[in-house]
Amino acid sequence: MSSNTWPLWEVFVRSARGLSHVHAGSLHAPDAEMAVRNARDLYTRRNEGISLWVVRSEDIITSDPDEKDSFFESPQGKDYRHATYYKASEGVKHL
């Protein structure tokens, strides 16, 4: 890639107060200031957002998909962490 290639950025949009920023897509921009502006132009043309984050794609650290099993196995089967596990108290008000 030539040094004149603009880097890739990931765009996150908050669509309304009270909601999290959600990944919307990516774009190219020469720097952070332009990236957030390009994100505005590209991802909020229809009032989709009230706040934007941009992050350089190369700065994102992800979990390794090859280790998916060992990484995410532990919570499987621990249904006692969920309220629905507790049947005996069903029907008791305000509980």
């Binding site: 040094s3 004149n4 290639t5 603009w6 020469p30 720097d31 952070a32 200031e33 332009m34 957030v36």
Partner: peptide
């Protein structure tokens, strides 16, 4: 557009750590 893309890339290299508006 080549000169524009070059200029923006050159600016980014020079002012990499400038503040975000």
């Amino acid at each position: 557009g080549a000169w524009v893309r070059e200029a923006a890339a050159a600016y980014a290299r020079k002012y990499e750590n400038s503040e975000v508006a």
